[in-house]
Design a protein around this nucleic acid. Structure first.
Lengths: 199, 199, 199, 199
DNA sequence: CTCTAATCGAGACGGTACGTCGCGTCTTACG
DNA sequence: CGTAAGACGCGACGTACCGTCTCGATTAGAG
């Protein structure tokens, strides 16, 4: 009877109506996150903003968190995949600059995710995913516990990017990359030359 | 009628019963935060755990957040007061060690606040208070925006302490202080000797 | 677009598929009425039982009630046409026996209608139709309001038949006819001989 | 937490607020039953009419049926207690008249219960309760199955009373009692004199 | 025997009532 | 007569079913 199992993945949906509904809900969520915190955000408010029926929400997602995950999870994975390698690159400063440029290219999305009402949740999801990756890749220093390295590196990077995206006067990606590298990446990889030198 | 204006501050309370109720509620909150997230914590659960009447809660606090603030706000201010000066001390490593020792002395409280269900809120409150302090004191480097310095320094310190308190095998305060200094404090104050050298 | 006007009457349908769908829905309704009440019966359950698509239901009937009416209305009219004349027959006992024999011949159908989950609705439809007939035919006694005679006669007859059909050990049609005649028909037509005498 | 067990019985309630709420809900139910059927009656509509909050309904009754039972169950038992003895009284006509007078005295209540939207349910509850009573008391005739006697007697009596209460021009209790006695009671007890004679 | 239009299944959708839960206010009965 | 216990109005929750709608995929029956 009232089965209607929730579709798991975004791409497996072909029906045009479903695509429309999901798009509307995602857009509504990002819009509302600019105004209020994720916790005090109502599913009713999301569906109202999206222009869909209330029950339609549950035909796609079991709860608010699932919608956020659908919006953010892959983006987070994508960004993480570009962050972890920073620690091994020969020229880590150049790579850091590439990372910032990538974020700047999707500035609107990342501003919503990192400075909006879901910032805390997105931040935790970042760290959760980072910890789940093979930690051996993230062990740059013998005196630093690997897990702490991951938590510190990921958290500090997110904080720095979030601060950047929250500014009205836009710093250039290069400037932020320099700071990010000097404050976070270099201490992790032990790149003393750059860490100590001028920018 | 049902006027009963809520008492604003903790010290203005003299009645023995009020002190008892507030203590019970605070203790109940900290206990419950070890089990579940702050958001999904109900006032009914807090009062049940505290052994007080449901309505009694509202005679002391307007809502959950107020109770948390009452428990955490001053502690946060106290810890912050010990953190900011790190950036100006001649011997910042020594000061960092003092900070970690202080936290270790109140390990139970800080574990509840920094690793429990309210961790996110407490973290944000830390940063909020830090930003509100005179930022001039926190400008160690010309190439680093002052506000970003505060956000980065505070956030990274909290993350590091939270990670430490979440470990079962207890690292010594000195070891953590060394890491904290090398990863966060030194880069902020430009203490290149320590930052670059081995530990 | 979605015009597809609902067919009003049963006989105007020629397409084999429509006949099949309607038959399946009718059968499903009667089956389900043996298990639960008409009210708590959902259209989804009917179509599932019938093996038809959900929307197909609405291509034939505007709502649940219409399906029930399609199944029951003509049967009710047919039975009523055999009941009313009882009141004028010379030999009313013989006619009553004929009525019961007729019901027994369609026992399965009438058991579903009179003892199943739609019993109340079918009963009211009986009385509604009986009242709509010319009431002059039903005025056997000067001291009895005609409308009351119809209501009493129809209602009591239905109740008696329903009780009969609900019994596991099957009373013979003749025995029920005797009781029906003695308790309902005779008092209505003033047949004092039979009403007062022993059976 | 959300315990608040529903109070079972009407009299065990002492709190003035509960009494007020229950009264308002009962009154609202009876009012609305004059306008529409019980099934299509919404709990929201009942609470709206009663002027209470929606959730308050469930603090007193688990569902619509329970409210109806609270309103009707004892009244039904009371009326039944006056109906069954009719079959044994020496002077059954006199007793029948007393029954009708009793109903007339509470005309408003019984009109709501027997002619309103819950008529079918109330009727079934009448028969259910009657069947549950010791059936030996209701066996007046050897040729009539006891259970059928109960069903017929109760059902026919209710129908007759319902018809009476539905009339605008009010028949006198005595006139209805005469008809009820002649059509239902006399045939059941075999009182041939009255059944055949004039009124 | 084909081909065209009616009918079908499947099920997403906007609605709305359900019954539950927690909030914060206000009343009551009890100690 | 002050306080705990808890009833209340409110509103969001997640579920179920309604009746409408759009999709192809058959499949009948007219030509």
């Amino acid at each position: 009877m009232g089965v209607e199992p929730v579709r798991q993945s975004r791409e497996l949906v072909s029906d045009a109506r479903q695509i429309r509904s999901r798009g509307a809900l995602s857009r509504a969520l990002l819009e509302l996150l600019e105004e209020q915190s994720f916790d005090q955000l109502t599913i009713r408010a999301i569906t109202a903003r999206a222009g869909t029926g209330y029950a339609t929400f549950f035909r796609h997602y079991p709860d608010k968190e699932a919608l956020l995950a659908d919006v953010a999870s892959e983006e987070i994975a994508g960004l993480l995949a570009r962050t972890i390698p920073l620690l091994h690159d020969i020229n880590s400063l150049e790579s850091t600059r590439a990372l910032c440029t990538y974020v700047a290219a999707q500035r609107k999305l990342w501003a919503a995710l990192l400075t909006g009402g879901a910032a805390g949740i997105v931040r935790e999801e970042f760290i959760r995913q980072a910890r789940a990756l093979d930690q051996s890749v993230a062990r740059p220093q013998f005196w630093l516990p690997a897990d702490l390295g991951v938590v510190f590196g990921t958290g500090a990077t997110i904080d720095l990017l979030a601060w950047w995206l929250a500014q009205d006067e836009v710093y250039e990606a290069g400037a932020i990359a320099a700071i990010l590298h000097r404050m976070v990446i270099a201490p992790l990889v032990g790149d003393s030359t750059l860490a100590a030198g001028p920018v």
